[in-house]
Structures are given as structure tokens and as C-alpha cells.
Simulated scan of single mutants.
Amino acid sequence: MSATLFSFLFAITILTLTPGFDTALVLRTAIAQGWQRAWATALGVTLGCLLWGIAVGLGLGALLMASEIAYNLLKWIGAGWLLYLGIKLLLKPRQQSVETAEQPAQPQGYLACFSRGLMGNLLNPKIGVFYVTFLPQFIPAGASVALWCTLMALTHMLLGLFWNAVLIGGSHYFAGYLRKPTVLKGMDRLTGCVFIGFAAKLALSRR
């Protein structure tokens, strides 16, 4: 049991530390909109992992493995969402951060930041497929699948929150430079390209 749990913790830690869409989203939000909105985004991202774990535990994740139509539908919706975010950043990059702007035109609310992180995770079917193939390996024989999947996803969520705390805290030290209008504008466009790249990668992916 202890060896199994250690293996799970090691694997899920590597997964958490691997840069991806969620890392880019949280960092960009921290620098452009401040640490509070970044935390709202991080909470949405990590809650998405927990919801995927619960879904897999209840057997819903297996649908993505069994149904090509269900997988492709969610895949294209997710790719479209990432593409929308990327194009929006390319066409309308921020000129100044929320914290330094004297009169922000449309300050983004915490709910919007939370929803963006949550939807970016929930609309990625690869996470569901990963969970449905990854988590069962660490469930003891005869144990409750729903309970263990939920607990493992909760562990993933807590690790994600800890790692996001490191990212958000670290961004504080170089945020002053990165909040310069020209740097912020270029960073938004670079992040937009990253999001479009993730959209293409998801659209071209297979189970």
C-alpha cells in the first residue's frame, strides 16, 4: 500500500509541475490582473481536476474511452474555447495591469477568472482519459473506486494549489518589470499564441 501511494504521489507531482495551459493561464493572470484574480483562476483550474476525478469514479470518464463521438465532441468544444481565448489575447492585449490602471475599461471579475480556469480544464477530454487510465492503477483491490478516485483527485487539487501558490508568489518579485505596457502587451500576445498552440494540439490529439 505504501509503495503504491508513493508511486501515485511521485507521478502526480511530476504531472503538476509539468508546464501546460493551466500554468500559462495562472501566470498570465497573476502578472496582468494581480494575485487575487490569479488565485481565483487557480482555484477554477484545480477544481476542474477534482470534478474530473469524481466523474471518473462514478464511471462517467469511461464514456470518453468507449464513445468516439463523446470524446470528439468534448475535444472540439475544448479546442474552440482555447482558440477563442488565444485569439482574444492576440487581438486585444492589455496595455496596463488591473492594479496600475487608473480607469480600467472592463475589469475582469473573480467569477470570470474562476470560470475561465474551470472551463479550460473541464473542456479538455484528455484529462478525463488520463484519469480513467491513470487512477485505477493505484486503487487497492476491493476498495471503493468512487472514493479512491475522489481522494486521489483531491490530492492532485491540493498539490496544484500549492504549486500555483509558488507560481503566484514568485511572480510578485518580477511583476514590476512585466507590468510595463510594452512588456504586458507582448506577453499577452505570446500567451495568446501559446493558447492557440494548445488548441491545435488538442484538436489534433487522439485518445
Rank of each mutant, 00 (worst) to 15 (best):
T150F: 00
A38Y: 09
L178A: 15
N121K: 01
K126L: 13
L50Q: 03
I54S: 04
V145S: 10
A70Y: 07
V98N: 06
G80A: 02
Y110A: 15
S7I: 05
L43M: 14
G170H: 09
A105V: 14
G120T: 13
L89C: 05
Q103N: 14
I54P: 00
G78P: 03
N72D: 13
G44D: 10
F21I: 13
L111N: 00
I77N: 03
L63A: 12
N164W: 11
A30P: 01
L202Q: 01
L122T: 05
G53K: 09
F134D: 10
I54M: 14
L89P: 02
S67H: 09
T23M: 11
L123Y: 10
P93S: 12
G61K: 07
G20L: 10
L64S: 06
V194A: 12
S7N: 13
G80L: 01
M157C: 15
G48I: 06
A66Q: 14
K75V: 08
E99R: 10
N72A: 04
Q96H: 05
D188R: 07
A30S: 15
L51F: 14
F130V: 10
V56Y: 05
L151G: 06
L9K: 02
A165Y: 07
T155E: 08
Q103A: 14
V132C: 11
R94S: 10
R207V: 13
G80N: 02
A79C: 06
A3R: 08
L151Y: 07
L158G: 03
G176P: 06
A42H: 11
V183N: 05
L184N: 09
F134N: 08
A24V: 13
A153W: 09
L154S: 10
N124A: 04
K126S: 13
A32W: 04
G192S: 12
Y177G: 10
I127S: 02
M119G: 04
G170Y: 09
T41A: 14
L51D: 07
L43K: 04
V56P: 03
G44I: 05
V45D: 00
A112R: 15
A165E: 01
A62I: 08
